[in-house]
């Protein structure tokens, strides 16, 4: 656990994005970090936050933040609004059994702000 944290600290940088209140509960929002678009999701019931690339790899559309979130057998997931391709928000893995996956990023909440490590 400790070594993992260190490796993230070593290779990634944390970015402060927006206040918690700016994000919809049980939905997603997109943040711009430099030129990158990151989708951020908040599961209100469990207080969990997830972040992933905003681009759906299926048709290369900047859209995932507008997707519906939920779970598949407890695994948190997002469904792309275009064709309902679903991805695990923990691993980025495609849950429809297709090849392409997405990048996911660590999220932490501090002082009422949402931070993402890229």
């Amino acid at each position: 656990m400790v070594s993992q944290n260190i490796s993230i600290e070593n290779t990634r940088q944390w970015y402060r994005t927006a206040p918690v209140t700016a994000f919809p509960a049980d939905g997603g929002g997109c943040v711009k970090i430099g030129e990158r678009q990151i989708a951020v999701f908040h599961f209100k019931a469990t207080g969990e936050w997830y972040a992933c690339q905003n681009m759906c790899p299926h048709k290369a559309q900047m859209i995932l933040a507008r997707g519906l979130i939920g779970d598949c057998q407890g695994e948190p997931k997002v469904a792309c609004p275009f064709h309902k391709k679903t991805f695990s928000l923990k691993t980025g893995q495609n849950l429809n059994g297709e090849e392409y996956a997405i990048e996911t990023y660590p999220v932490r909440v501090e002082d009422g702000f949402v931070y993402i490590a890229l």
């Binding site: 049980d26 519906l68 939920g70 309902k84």
Partner: peptide
């Protein structure tokens, strides 16, 4: 149960 999903939410 759970969080729901893209099927049951709509």
């Amino acid at each position: 149960k759970g969080h729901g999903c893209e099927v049951c939410k709509p």
